[in-house]
């Protein structure tokens, strides 16, 4: 057990990386709230926020949940359902006319 544990943890990011990720996450959150309050961004608010949120999502999953360094099987078993969920959400929004209203 300890052997595999040590082996696995070699791949994990260092404390420095964790702190850097935390800093980036904080900055992105500040930017998100910032653009929310700036009227000039209003027309492109939705795409900006979606991209920023996806970036945060990816950072946590890749570094805090170690998917970037871990076995690819974990990525597969997580991302397949994630993509399904995303597809379902988009399809439902389409079917309920959310994209028509704009």
């Amino acid at each position: 057990m300890s052997d595999t544990a040590r082996h696995e943890h070699q791949g994990h990011a260092s404390t420095g990386t964790y702190l850097a990720v935390a800093a980036v996450l904080t900055i992105i959150t500040l930017v998100e709230v910032g653009v929310f309050y700036v009227p000039a961004f209003q027309p492109v608010l939705v795409p900006i926020l979606l991209v920023l949120s996806a970036a945060k999502f990816a950072l946590v999953v890749m570094f805090y949940m170690h998917l970037k360094f871990d076995h690819r099987l974990f990525t597969l078993i997580f991302s397949l359902p994630l993509l399904l969920a995303l597809g379902v959400a988009i399809a439902l929004l389409f079917l309920f006319g959310a994209f028509v209203l704009g």
Binding site: L84, A85, V88, A89, L92
Partner: peptide, 13 residues
């Protein structure tokens, strides 16, 4: 993911 996906989709719909 599908549990929260369904809940979030419903909220948005």
């Amino acid at each position: 993911c599908l549990l929260f996906g369904s809940l979030i989709s419903t909220y948005l719909v």
